[in-house]
């Protein structure tokens, strides 16, 4: 008992026995999952393992049927909606890069900045010098400074992924959920993205969902393998990839 409550107290994100089903299909089956502050965690698993559903539940898009979802051991995320959760400090990158294509890259970042997001505050908002500096900083982090005035629609697929990560950074989250960040990227881009995520994880927790085993190896972090809605194995990449159940369910022989 003691260890469980200790785990909870230390955790940034705490999921216990979370289940959800859609029309009889159990997408999550008493899933338990803990992320500690400052941790970089990778999640793997076959299609339909519940990876995206888990992210939906953490970010308030889907309500679980049963189970506990706590943020910083105090905030019940099942009672909050997406905007609340985002404001609490959980950022999410979608599988398909989702940026504001008819805005410039600069505007995309400006919108993402962690400032008062109420209607009237945004109506009367003016860009302050420190906000400007912050955006410039992020632009250089995501290597898009030279294209800041272009429309986001003109970016390549990989650059859109980076812009989205940049937007998450501007949000200043405590926890970043990243869904398949390197899908459709070249090898060089993949390597750069791994660097970027490691950089980011220095100051906050990051959870990465990815299929690319090479990329996960490159991250070199603790891996959780999901299958059929619950955790199959957890540990280092070598430990998990040698687990017979994981091989059976996911990696194949």
């Amino acid at each position: 008992m003691n260890t469980i409550s200790e785990t909870r107290q230390k955790s940034l994100l705490y999921l216990e026995n979370v289940s959800v089903s859609f029309d009889g299909f159990k997408a999550l089956n008493s899933l338990s999952f803990v992320v500690e502050p400052g941790e970089l965690r990778a999640i793997i698993g076959p299609n339909g393992a519940g990876k995206t559903t888990m992210m939906d539940i953490i970010t308030g898009k889907t309500r679980p049927d049963t189970g506990t979802v706590l943020f910083e051991d105090a905030i019940d995320l099942t009672k909050k909606d997406e905007a609340d959760i985002a404001q609490l400090g959980i950022g999410r990158k979608f599988q398909k890069p989702t940026v504001f294509e008819s805005h410039t890259i600069w505007d995309n970042l400006e919108l993402a900045l962690n400032r008062d997001r109420s209607v009237f505050a945004t109506l009367f908002y003016t860009l302050s010098p420190e906000d400007e500096a912050r955006i410039e900083e992020i632009l250089s982090t995501i290597r898009l400074s030279h294209r800041k005035d272009e429309l986001a629609a003109n970016l390549s697929h990989g650059q859109k992924q980076w812009l989205e990560i940049g937007m998450l950074l501007a949000q200043e989250p405590k926890l970043l959920l990243v869904d398949e960040p390197v899908a459709g990227m070249t090898d060089a881009e993949t390597a750069e993205t791994a660097e970027l995520l490691k950089e980011i994880a220095k100051t906050r927790s990051v959870v990465v969902v990815e299929h690319d085993m090479g990329f996960i190896r490159e991250l070199g972090v603790k891996v959780t393998c999901l299958a059929e809605g619950s955790v199959l194995a957890e540990g280092s990449i070598d430990f998990v990839s040698n687990d017979p159940k994981v091989i059976e369910n996911y990696l194949g022989r």
Partner: peptide, 9 residues
């Protein structure tokens, strides 16, 4: 309505 895993975006 059919429920289903929320489609992204």
């Amino acid at each position: 309505a059919l429920k289903g895993r929320a489609v992204e975006a």
